[in-house]
């Protein structure tokens, strides 16, 4: 086994051309997923069964099935119905990229809403009582007390989920998207050098995971700046 370094040097720049797609998938679905997660969270903690029950079912289904199946249902499955092909949504679902973003957002939304709920449940009861004692409305208590503290508590778990979202973007390559993994798979199909290509790509992903972890680490420190004890 001889490692072909010239091949790595030649194909790494080609693979890195997919970086834009990988980041688009990560950022757009991360953002849409977060919004969805907040809606699901509000539904779950609303205390009304007709809101919390559908949210629970949604979370159960999307966390209980593989993301690959979800991507395939949306990309291959939905065009089975004529009404979807004639609806406005078709302009998004026609493109593999749109399908991947929809699938990843729906999936990550379910996971993130559970993480946020964990944060909300971990907020000290005393603080909320203090809010009531000050005469704050339920809305004020949520926005000024629960939300900021829950964000801080949920952040470490959220950073893990963003990293698994980064890893899930690689699955977009299964529906013909030329992200980094998709390009790598094409190169391997042509050169048949899986070691060189896949391992160098794995290192690229590791570097991104590392950067994301650092970014979240700094954010955690920043959000926790008032909670540190002196001396």
């Amino acid at each position: 086994m001889i490692v072909d370094f010239t091949l790595i040097a030649e194909s790494l720049p080609i693979m890195l051309k997919g970086i834009g797609i990988t980041f688009q998938l990560l950022i757009i679905s991360g953002f849409l997923g977060l919004i969805l997660a907040i809606f699901l969270l509000l539904m779950r903690i609303s205390g009304k069964w007709y809101l919390s029950f559908p949210a629970q079912i949604y979370i159960y289904v999307f966390r209980g099935t593989p993301i690959l199946v979800q991507i395939f249902i949306i990309y291959y499955g939905l065009p089975q119905f004529g009404f979807i092909r004639s609806s406005i949504l078709w302009s998004i679902l026609r493109e593999p990229m749109g399908c991947a973003i929809v699938a990843l957002s729906l999936n990550t939304g379910a996971y993130v809403s559970e993480i946020l709920r964990g944060g909300v449940l971990a907020v000290g009861k005393g603080l909320i009582e203090a809010g009531s004692a000050l005469g704050m409305s339920a809305y004020q208590k949520f926005v000024y007390i629960t939300a900021p503290i829950a964000t801080r508590i949920a952040l470490p778990a959220y950073s893990n989920d963003v990293i698994s979202l980064l890893k899930s973007t690689a699955l977009a390559s299964t529906i013909t998207i030329a992200d980094m993994t998709g390009i790598a798979r094409t190169i391997v199909a042509n050169t048949y050098a899986p070691y060189e290509i896949f391992i160098s790509l794995a290192i690229v992903y590791l570097i991104f995971t590392f950067i994301l972890q650092k970014l979240f680490g700094y954010t955690e420190q920043y959000l926790g700046r008032y909670t540190k004890r002196e001396g």
């Binding site: 690689a170 992903y205 590791l206």
Partner: peptide
């Protein structure tokens, strides 16, 4: 742990299959 938690699952599976086949 660093390597396997930071790489996409699909990459590990592809590498394991095609890599072992080449070897």
């Amino acid at each position: 742990t660093v390597a396997f938690r930071g790489t996409p699952e699909i990459l590990v599976i592809l590498l394991m299959y095609f890599g072992s086949a080449i070897f």
